[in-house]
Design a binder for these strands. Structure first.
Length: 565
DNA sequence: GCCGTTTTCGGCCCGACTGTTTTCAGTCG
């Protein structure tokens, strides 16, 4: 599922993990990891490349090209990390070395077995483990389990679009779309709901069951079929007559709480709402059902965008005619947080700019990492040389203005990488937390507020630093931060990377009440990441944001005024 | 294993943090 590049990325990561757990050369591990990332982020389709083509991908040499070709030819994976060790390394804070030790010495191969071992205090006897390790591992496991079996919106979207694309072409299918939490743009998705309008359910049900990535059929009837994919994701397919399409979409999009409200509204009007339509409660006469618009209209409501359907006041706002006109992906005129291979990006400046121009942006900011993220080895000379390249590229580029920026590191006391005089030379500065995640609430709040107060900082990047299912965000008094943003005219980022989505929808809702502006950014490290903004826009919509709230939906002149210190 | 304005060998993404050590290994960004 997904691109072949993703499979190859996983293959090379597997090689890296193997070398890591067997205590091999750390540089070799890194070489495989770098090649894995490069292939994952490459716009080229590796399935179509020969050895020469493969070696043109950065960090891919003769040896790795050979292994990739071998995999593509035979599908074989030469050796595998023991499944148990792999599972254990998914626990945040537990790396390959210690996972291997647990596996070998205690025979632990699953998270449950590890929990048992911890409770039996068997870990303490192992060299390198103590009471604190136990605590940390338990915390890591609980973090992982909170995400549960839900998958990230990025992966779910890819699968859903492929699925609806394939089912749409089945004979008799009038319409086909996904509904559920994915349509509401929730950050994680439990299962995928697909709706089909058709008078003949048979063929499309059969088509779903016959898909190559269908691993298991959970239910198979004339109205509903449920399958589990090879990757363990459940897909529910419902087939409805075309006259019920709108009611079905409304019903299966949810949320449950939103549907309870709409049904209450129906009852008060002497109506009955189900997935088949909106009917008169007494006569049973159909009042609406073919489109969502007519269903909502019959309830006295304008159409409500799916991301709003969370019972957060959207019904009342709709009845008053005060629903926000939500920002849409097409409203974005630029991206204000992106990287190149000058730091940890995968593609050169020119390629990133080309890809941005192809998206039709009016402006595009290049914001590579600043020196205090030591591993990126940024220097004054390097960033200034990049600025020259950006300026000259800007002169030759028609239609899209390039902005030269940087992603600064907010130190533990709120200090930044460069003095103000140097920062003044950038068109914009994003400032983000990349270290000292463990400071107490007061210290975290203070450092963020101080970053906001720097006149050269216009955007706070991924404000909480959370990574979904991997790491909780930092503890801070975010109301205080929102207040500081509003006061200083600093935008908060909605980082659109599907593993981050930071701020999250609820924080966006709250921040907006303080009068904060937002920037929906991809944080792209490769051209293939630029489209991630769609997920950030989903968060913005769930946070009730309009075009006016999002600074990179503004025309360049207005944005420039905002960026001025 | 990759790479080269230090080019076919000898570097490579460095430093902080944590918990376990008594001088360091593992993990992370």
């Amino acid at each position: 599922m997904g691109r072949v590049n993703d499979e190859v990325e996983a293959l090379l990561q597997e090689y890296a993990d193997l070398i890591a757990i067997s205590g091999g050369d750390a540089f070799k591990v890194r070489a495989y990891e770098k090649a894995a990332r490069s292939i994952g982020g490459s716009p080229l389709d590796v399935a179509e490349l020969d050895a020469k083509g493969l070696k043109e991908i950065p960090n891919v040499g003769a040896s790795i090209a050979e292994k990739v070709l071998d995999y593509l030819r035979t599908g074989r994976v030469p050796a595998a990390v023991p499944a148990g060790v792999r599972e254990l390394t998914r626990i945040p804070g537990l790396g390959p070395k210690r996972a291997m030790l647990l596996h070998e010495r205690l025979g632990v191969a699953t998270v449950d077995q590890l929990l048992d071992a911890i409770h039996a205090e068997r870990l303490r006897d192992l060299r390198g483990f103590g009471e604190k390790s136990e605590e940390n591992i338990l915390a890591g496991i609980s973090m992982m389990q909170k995400a549960g079996s839900r998958i990230l919106i990025g992966a779910a979207t890819e699968i859903a679009e492929r699925l609806t694309g394939e089912l749409s072409s089945v004979p008799g299918v009038v319409r086909c779309a996904h509904a559920g939490s994915l349509r509401r743009m929730r950050e994680t998705i439990g299962d995928i709901d697909v709706l089909v309008a058709s008078e003949r359910p048979g063929p499309v049900m059969e088509a779903l069951v016959a898909l190559p990535y269908t691993a298991e059929v959970l239910a198979h009837g004339s109205k509903k079929t449920s399958i589990r994919t090879t990757k363990g994701l459940q897909v529910d397919l419902r087939v409805l007559p075309p006259a019920s399409w709108g009611a079905g979409m409304q019903y299966f999009t949810g949320s449950k709480a939103h549907n309870v409200r709409t049904r209450e509204l129906a009852v008060r009007r002497g109506l009955k709402l189900s997935e088949y339509g909106l009917f008169d409660a007494e006569s049973g006469e159909r009042r609406a059902g073919a489109t969502e618009e007519e269903v909502y209209a019959a309830l006295g409501l304008p159409w409500i965008a799916p991301p709003l359907r969370e019972d957060r006041g959207e019904i009342a706002a709709g009845l008053r005619g005060e629903l926000p006109e939500l920002v849409a992906e097409g409203d974005l005129r630029g991206d204000l947080h992106t990287h190149t291979d000058l730091t940890d990006g995968l593609a050169p400046l020119e390629e990133m700019v080309e890809a941005a121009a192809a998206r039709g942006y009016a402006y595009y900011a290049v914001t590579d990492h600043a020196p205090n993220l030591y591993m990126q080895r940024m220097t004054d000379e390097k960033i200034l040389a990049q600025r020259e390249r950006v300026r000259s590229l800007d002169r030759t580029h028609r239609g899209m203005r390039l902005l030269h920026g940087t992603e600064l590191n907010i130190g533990p006391d709120g200090e930044l990488d460069w003095p103000d005089e140097f920062l003044a030379g950038f068109d914009l500065c994003v400032a983000s937390v990349h270290s000292h995640f463990g400071l107490d609430r007061r210290a975290q709040t203070r450092r963020l507020v101080r970053a906001c107060e720097n006149p050269y900082v216009q955007v706070i990047g991924h404000p909480t630093t959370r990574r979904i299912g991997r790491r909780a965000g930092i503890e801070a008094d975010f109301d205080e931060v929102f207040r500081a943003c509003a006061r200083t005219g600093t935008a908060l980022e909605i980082n659109a990377h599907p593993e981050r989505l930071d701020l999250c929808d609820e924080d966006v809702l709250r921040a907006k009440r303080f009068g904060v502006r937002f920037a929906v950014d991809s944080d792209a490290h490769s051209p293939t990441h630029l489209p991630y903004v769609r997920y950030g826009v989903g968060v913005a919509q769930r946070g009730w944001l309009t075009r006016d709230d999002v600074v990179n939906a503004w025309p360049l002149t207005r944005l420039r005024r905002f960026l001025r210190p």
